[in-house]
Measured scan of single mutants.
Amino acid sequence: ATNIVGKVKWYNSTKNFGFIEQDNGGKDVFVHKSAVDAAGLHSLEEGQDVIFDLEEKQGKAYAVNLRIK
Protein backbone atom coordinates (compact mmCIF):
# COMPACT_ATOMS: atom_id res chain seq x y z
CA ALA A 1 0.00 0.00 0.00
CA THR A 2 1.23 3.51 -0.74
CA ASN A 3 0.59 7.05 0.48
CA ILE A 4 -0.93 6.01 3.79
CA VAL A 5 -1.64 8.89 6.14
CA GLY A 6 -1.01 8.52 9.85
CA LYS A 7 0.25 10.01 13.08
CA VAL A 8 3.30 9.03 15.07
CA LYS A 9 1.99 7.12 18.09
CA TRP A 10 5.44 7.05 19.70
CA TYR A 11 9.08 6.92 18.66
CA ASN A 12 12.02 5.99 20.87
CA SER A 13 15.23 7.50 19.45
CA THR A 14 17.31 5.46 21.92
CA LYS A 15 15.86 2.14 20.75
CA ASN A 16 15.58 3.39 17.14
CA PHE A 17 11.99 2.41 16.46
CA GLY A 18 8.39 3.35 17.07
CA PHE A 19 4.86 3.00 15.77
CA ILE A 20 2.58 5.01 13.49
CA GLU A 21 -1.19 5.01 13.94
CA GLN A 22 -2.99 4.82 10.59
CA ASP A 23 -5.71 7.44 10.00
CA ASN A 24 -7.79 4.76 8.23
CA GLY A 25 -8.07 2.75 11.45
CA GLY A 26 -5.72 -0.02 10.35
CA LYS A 27 -3.22 -1.68 12.67
CA ASP A 28 -0.39 0.43 14.06
CA VAL A 29 2.66 0.24 11.82
CA PHE A 30 6.24 -0.36 12.95
CA VAL A 31 8.76 2.30 11.88
CA HIS A 32 12.53 1.78 12.15
CA LYS A 33 15.31 4.35 12.34
CA SER A 34 16.41 3.38 8.82
CA ALA A 35 13.12 4.79 7.42
CA VAL A 36 13.55 7.94 9.52
CA ASP A 37 17.14 8.36 8.29
CA ALA A 38 16.12 7.74 4.67
CA ALA A 39 13.57 10.57 5.03
CA GLY A 40 16.39 12.91 6.10
CA LEU A 41 14.98 13.21 9.62
CA HIS A 42 16.72 12.86 12.97
CA SER A 43 13.71 11.60 14.89
CA LEU A 44 9.91 11.58 14.95
CA GLU A 45 7.67 13.42 17.39
CA GLU A 46 4.57 11.95 19.01
CA GLY A 47 1.48 13.20 17.17
CA GLN A 48 3.44 14.20 14.05
CA ASP A 49 1.46 13.78 10.81
CA VAL A 50 3.22 11.53 8.30
CA ILE A 51 2.64 9.85 4.97
CA PHE A 52 4.27 6.50 4.25
CA ASP A 53 4.20 3.34 2.20
CA LEU A 54 3.53 -0.04 3.75
CA GLU A 55 5.80 -3.01 3.12
CA GLU A 56 5.58 -6.50 4.52
CA LYS A 57 8.47 -8.73 5.40
CA GLN A 58 8.03 -12.13 7.02
CA GLY A 59 4.40 -11.32 7.77
CA LYS A 60 5.16 -8.05 9.55
CA ALA A 61 4.13 -4.65 8.20
CA TYR A 62 6.49 -1.70 8.43
CA ALA A 63 6.64 1.89 7.19
CA VAL A 64 8.94 2.92 4.33
CA ASN A 65 9.26 6.04 2.14
CA LEU A 66 8.32 8.14 5.13
CA ARG A 67 7.57 11.83 4.69
CA ILE A 68 6.14 14.59 6.83
CA LYS A 69 2.61 15.62 5.91
Results as ranks from 00 to 15, higher is better:
F19S: 02
S43H: 13
E21I: 08
D49E: 12
N16P: 03
D53S: 08
V29F: 06
F19R: 02
R67D: 05
L41M: 13
S43C: 04
E56K: 09
Y62P: 01
K60W: 07
T14F: 11
K33Q: 10
Y11A: 01
K60N: 08
E45M: 12
G6E: 00
N24M: 09
K33H: 08
D28P: 08
D23P: 15
K60L: 11
R67E: 06
G40Q: 11
V5G: 14
Q48Y: 07
E56A: 09
Q58M: 08
L41S: 05
E55M: 14
G40W: 14
S43D: 09
E55Y: 08
H42C: 05
V5A: 14
I4R: 08
L44H: 01
Q48A: 06
G26Q: 11
E55S: 11
D37R: 14
D23G: 12
E46V: 15
E55W: 08
G18S: 01
V50Y: 04
A61P: 13
Y11V: 03
D28W: 06
K33C: 04
T14W: 10
A38T: 15
H32D: 05
S34I: 10
A38G: 14
G6Y: 01
E46Q: 14
D23S: 15
L44E: 01
S43K: 10
K9N: 03
N12K: 10
E46L: 05
V64W: 07
G26T: 14
S34V: 14
K33M: 06
S43Q: 14
K7C: 03
G59P: 03
G47L: 06
Q22I: 14
K60D: 04
W10K: 03
Y11C: 02
E21F: 15
V8G: 01
N24Y: 10
F19M: 08
V29C: 04
K27P: 07
Y11P: 01
E46F: 14
A1Y: 06
V64F: 10
T2L: 10
Q48V: 09
K33T: 05
V64D: 04
L66A: 01
N3Q: 13
V8H: 01
N3I: 03
E55P: 02
F19E: 02
K7M: 06
Y62C: 04
V8C: 03
Q58T: 06
K57Q: 15
K9C: 03
G6S: 02
A61S: 15
E56V: 11
E45A: 11
W10F: 09
N24W: 12
Q22P: 15
E56N: 07
F30V: 03
A61R: 15
L66S: 00
D37Y: 12
D28V: 08
R67N: 08
G18D: 00
E56C: 04
Y11K: 01
K7Q: 08
D28C: 04
A1K: 15
N24Q: 09
E56D: 07
N12I: 14
W10E: 02
N3L: 06
A35M: 09
G25D: 10
Y62Q: 09
F52E: 00
T14N: 13
H42Y: 15
A39E: 03
K60Y: 08
V50G: 01
N16M: 10
L44I: 07
I4K: 14
K57I: 08
V29M: 04
V8Q: 01
V29W: 07
D23A: 09
H42M: 09
I68G: 07
E55V: 11
Q22L: 10
D28K: 05
F52G: 01
Q58C: 04
A39Q: 05
S34M: 14
G25P: 08
T14K: 14
S13V: 14
T2D: 05
G26A: 15
L44C: 02
V31C: 04
D49I: 14
K7W: 07
A1T: 09
K15A: 11
V64A: 10
V50K: 00
E21A: 08
E45W: 06
F30E: 02
K60F: 13
R67L: 08
V50C: 04
S43V: 13
K27V: 10
A35P: 01
S13M: 09
N24I: 11
Y62H: 09
D49K: 14
L54C: 04
